[in-house]
Structure formats: C-alpha cells, structure tokens
C-alpha cells in the first residue's frame, strides 16, 4: 500500500515538474529570450559560482578545523614524524595554490560575465607569462620532491644491524607473526611445508628455526629499530600500520621488508589520547578476498626492558607442539629435544 502511495506521489511530482518545464519553455519562446545570446540565467550562473566559492570555502575550513583531531592519527614512529611533516608542508603549498586558482576560477565568471556592449580581450599568448608559470611550479615541485626523496631514501635504507626482526605472513584472512627467538635469526621456510600446525611453513631442519616462536600480538620495543620481514602465502596482502605510517605489500614468492622505530608505547599513547582502549593495529590494504576487511593484528609497543622480559617468556613452536620435530633427522632431533627441555 505504501509502495503504491509513494508511486502515485512520485508520478504527481513528476507531472508537476513536467508542466513547470513546459510552461517555462513556452514563456521563454514568447518572450523571445531564447533568441538572445545570453539570457537572464547568465547572471544567475555567474553569481552561483561566487556563492559556491564562499559556501564551499567556509564549509571546508570549518570541517577541516573541527575534525582535525579525528583524521590526524597520532604518530608513533620516527619516520612517521618526517612523512607527516612532508604531508603538511605539501598541504600548505598545494592549499595556497588550491585557494588562489579557485578564487580566480570562480570570480572570473562573475566579473567577466557576458555583456553585449563589451568585447573580450584578444589575448592569444604571452611567452613571458608562460615561462613564469612553467618555472615556478617546477621549482616548487623540485623542492617538494627533494624532501620526499630524502625521506624515502632514509626509510627504505637497509635496516640497522641491531634491528629486532619480526616476520609477518599474510594469508586469507589473517596475519601470522613469527619471532626469530634469542638468536635473532629466522629459520628457513618453504611454502610446501605449510600445514594447519605450521602456518608459516617453517623449515625445522634449519637450526635457526628451533627457537622461533609465534605470538598472537606483535610486541615490539619502543625506541629500538624493528624490521618487519613480510611474506604472503596465497594472494597479495599489504601490511598497514596506520599509527606507524607503515605500509608494505606482502607478495607470494617475493619477501618484502619495512623497518621503523616506534616512539611511543601503547601505554603512553593511551595516556596521550585519553583513550584507555587504544591499541596499535595492522590492517590489510591490498584487496585479498572475502575477509579483506577483517585482517586485524594488534601491535603492542612496550619499553625495551619489558620487551626483553617478554621475549624470554615466549615458548618456541617446537615446545608448544613437539610433533613438528618428530620426523627430523637424528642429530637435529637431539638438538630440538635439548631446546625443548631448556624451555620446560
């Protein structure tokens, strides 16, 4: 019944609009305004541009200022400070250009709207002007690029020797975290070894993998470099830690990496934001299928001492699941059993 009423209402509304449209067409024909080069609407359109300019500018500034704390995520990494500074410098430069060009673009239509008594200026070119507005943007862009290039080179430079290594493996639809253990060296992996109990496909015939362990949360120390070694085992994923200003694709068959230094512990950030629930997160930003929006992993940043203590408390894969090493060759098995007994 409601559907029917709505349909009737829509039909009525459309027929009214239709009649208004026909009437105004006929009126304009009678008045002969359709013969004029520029009708009265010209003035209205010209005015609309100015109104739009004023209205949109107010709206933009109001919302940008009001919402600043919402969209500007707190920064928690060293390079994040740099890239954010670049972001806001670029925002300032482009913002000025944005405003100036738009003021001109919307003010000219008002100022130079059609007037049959006036003739437009015949002004086909001016080489000096052209050269100026080729060179000025070129210089501005060069400055911006050089800033970006320096930052980019630093960020993508090889990780410091003392970095804490964490392997992050993306798969449909979760992240698996692997720590190298006390030797700070990840064991080899082979995708063919993947199974329900060996999510990362760790190769336990490699001695380095015996102390490798996993963790439901990425725990990292504050103020010390951390190297994410990133892998994927099925389709593309992308590790995105928004507060760390960190993003790197996870590619099957091609390990990638991203190193950074966290600057604030989770607890510090909780105090700073006044949000007791605050957590650092990892999300996936490369479309990967049904659960693309559900690949969440938490990062916990702690003080270095706490991190060391936490590391020492962790139990390797093989301790939690000795079956993983049950069919190793004899001498390795012995080594594995020693490791297991050490942790018991």
């Amino acid at each position: 019944m409601y559907g029917f009423l709505i349909a009737v209402g829509v039909l009525l509304l459309m027929s009214i609009i239709w009649m208004v449209y026909r009437i105004q067409t006929l009126v304009s024909v009678v008045k002969g305004s359709d013969k004029k080069i520029a009708s009265g609407s010209n003035k209205i359109n010209a005015l609309m541009f100015v109104l739009f300019l004023v209205g949109a500018t107010i709206l933009m500034f109001w919302y940008s200022i009001k919402e600043f704390d919402n969209y500007q995520l707190p920064i928690a990494s060293e390079h994040g400070e740099v890239t954010d500074r670049l972001f806001w410098i670029t925002m300032a430069v482009t913002g000025v250009v944005f405003l100036i060009t738009h003021v001109l673009l919307f003010w000219f239509p008002y100022k130079y709207q059609y007037d049959e008594k006036r003739k437009a200026a015949f002004y086909p070119d001016n080489n000096k002007l052209e050269v100026i507005w080729t060179i000025v943007p070129a210089i501005a862009l060069t400055v911006l690029v050089i800033g970006g290039w320096k930052a980019w080179s630093d960020i993508t430079a090889p990780a410091p020797e003392n970095s804490h290594v964490v392997e992050i493996l993306g798969y449909q639809f979760a992240w698996e975290v692997r720590y190298p253990g006390m030797d700070n060296t990840l064991g080899e992996h082979d995708y063919r070894l993947t199974s329900a109990t060996n999510v990362s496909g760790v190769d336990f015939t490699d001695k380095n993998s015996l102390d490798d362990f996993t963790s439901p949360v990425v725990v990292i120390p504050k103020g010390e470099p951390v190297l994410f070694k990133i892998r994927a085992r099925d389709v593309l994923h992308s590790v995105f830690a928004p507060h760390m200003r960190l993003k790197m694709d996870a590619v099957p068959g091609m390990p990638t990496r991203f190193w950074f230094t966290a600057t604030k512990t989770t607890d510090e950030m909780r105090r700073e934001t006044g949000n007791d629930e605050f957590v650092y997160e990892i999300a996936c930003t490369e479309i990967c299928g049904r659960g693309h929006n559900a690949m969440r992993k938490e990062i916990r940043v702690v003080e270095p001492e706490e991190f060391r203590k936490w590391m020492a408390d962790q139990k390797p894969y093989i301790v939690n699941n000795p079956a993983l090493v049950s069919d190793l060759p004899e001498e390795l098995k012995e080594l594995a059993e020693i490791t297991i007994s050490e942790y018991k």
């Binding site: 080069i37 520029a38 609407s41 010209n42 359109n45 010209a46 060009t101 001109l104 673009l105 000219f108 239509p109 130079y112 709207q113 059609y114 007037d115 006036r118 003739k119 437009a120 200026a121 002004y123 002007l129 052209e130 507005w133 080729t134 943007p137 070129a138 862009l141």
Partner: peptide, 22 residues
C-alpha cells in the same frame, strides 16, 4: 604535474577578460 599546471593557468587566463556565456 608541470604541463598539467600550465594547462590550468592557461584556462584561467582564457577566462580572464573574456565575455563569458554560461
């Protein structure tokens, strides 16, 4: 971005002192 910027400035200058019909 440079040729793109040039195009924008040229559009603006075309509007400048024109006799605009909307």
């Amino acid at each position: 971005a440079i040729p793109s910027a040039v195009k924008v400035f040229n559009y603006l200058t075309t509007l400048w002192r024109g006799n605009l019909i909307f």
